[in-house]
Nucleic acid binder design. Sequence first.
DNA 1: ATAAACCTTATAGTTAACTCTAAGTCAAGG
DNA 2: CCTTGACTTAGAGTTAACTATAAGGTTTAT
Lengths: 134, 134
Amino acid sequence: MKYSIGEVAKKLNLTAYTLRYYDKEGLIPFVERTPNGIRMFKESDLDALKVIECLKSTGMPIKEIKNFIDWCSEGDASLQQRYDLFMERKATVFAQMEELEKTMELIEHKCNYYKTALDAGTEEIHKNNKIEGF
Amino acid sequence: MKYSIGEVAKKLNLTAYTLRYYDKEGLIPFVERTPNGIRMFKESDLDALKVIECLKSTGMPIKEIKNFIDWCSEGDASLQQRYDLFMERKATVFAQMEELEKTMELIEHKCNYYKTALDAGTEEIHKNNKIEGF
DNA sequence: ATAAACCTTATAGTTAACTCTAAGTCAAGG
DNA sequence: CCTTGACTTAGAGTTAACTATAAGGTTTAT
């Protein structure tokens, strides 16, 4: 099964513009074309795009993702680099999770703060509390 | 205890440029000045900045954060809006956590994939596996 | 008293990641 | 045959969030 750029855009919740931009940036050099130049995405191309989106969601910039794509076409010589890359990403994502936990704690604290204030009808209820200044 | 813009920048791991930018965007209207116009940050201003950084880390754009800051100076009339804002943020952060879990799963899968390939000396080891295409 | 190290303003420049426009090609349906 | 709609390219425009510059003022240490 092959897909047009519009179909892939829909499937992956991207735009055709974005996919052409990725192509221009060298992220999807493996996508084949019809004789008249139209991109034909294979199933494996979709898998690759999912990995690209995964890396992007970890905050990796497109230029670094391109390095990884380049390594992929270098074959076994780059296996160590690619392993290292994912191990480093794993650490990054772990740090992001911890960061997000802390964010959640403050958000929940604020939810409670405003719930209490709302129940009391005024924020004054917190004004004695030296810890909660804002 | 009062702090200069440079001290606050260091404390919160921002730059003085960023803090002046926040001020220009109306994020910190409560920061007072010396008679000759120099910003003097109070302890409570640091707390406010921490909340701003927290909201920012949830992906909230600066203009929306400004709305919240405006609500804060409106007093009790905006308690409901502020409560709603944090409840909505809570849902957002929860969704981000779930997203990050999925990302982590794919990353860990890739770590294993490359570990196996590295041990075998070649990526060929995965070529029979129809599920793992990339 | 003079240089270093801060601060101020207004405004211009940068960066990443899109996002869109213009001009044109191509295949299918009425 | 001709229109519709999806595709192509090159290149320009957008946006958010900084980031830096220029020109100048103030405070502190020698």
